[in-house]
Amino acid sequence: MALALTDDAGRYGATEQISDDQLMLAYRRGDKRAFDALYTKYKSPLHGYLYRHCNSETQTAELFQDVWVRVIASSSRFEGSGRFRSWIFTLAHNCLVDFHRKNEKQQLHTTYEESAGGNGPDDEAGESELRSALDRSLRRLPLDQRQAFCLREEQGFSIKEIAVIQNVTAEAAKSRLRYTYKKLKASMGGQRS
């Protein structure tokens, strides 16, 4: 995972590759552009990941902000051992766990069904139904399984990396993934039939 160094105008250009870790260390030393580069790179993946686990955009925005505040506040403790990507998603994972503990009574995945009914008018009816079924099935699963699935399918993490982020063994991570896939596959089959 790498980004480019600055060009003549001071922006991070395409002349030489530098890693996320180097960017984070540069930010620690006071380089705002390094933070910009990291933020630009990770804002969409992180936002998408958090959105999958929340009811609304407001909650997602709240969590998103919380994660970045943690990233910024913990920047002085970041050691740069080549794992920035895992590190930031670990922070996101922890934020989600904290958030869901606080809102346990609200049962986010059930209320989601009420709020996530509407899809784009341009979507074809079949695809829309399939996506809704998948989405609904995913949101009914426990948080750790949903997280494992999103980390793999949306962020491209391996089983081992997911295990590190969720602080479990690789076997446990694999088991979670397999269970999630099977559940989703079953819900797809039910929808199609």
Partner: peptide, 9 residues
């Protein structure tokens, strides 16, 4: 977020 990050450093 950017503002907070700049202010922090």
């Amino acid at each position: 977020i950017r503002k907070f990050a700049y202010a922090h450093i």
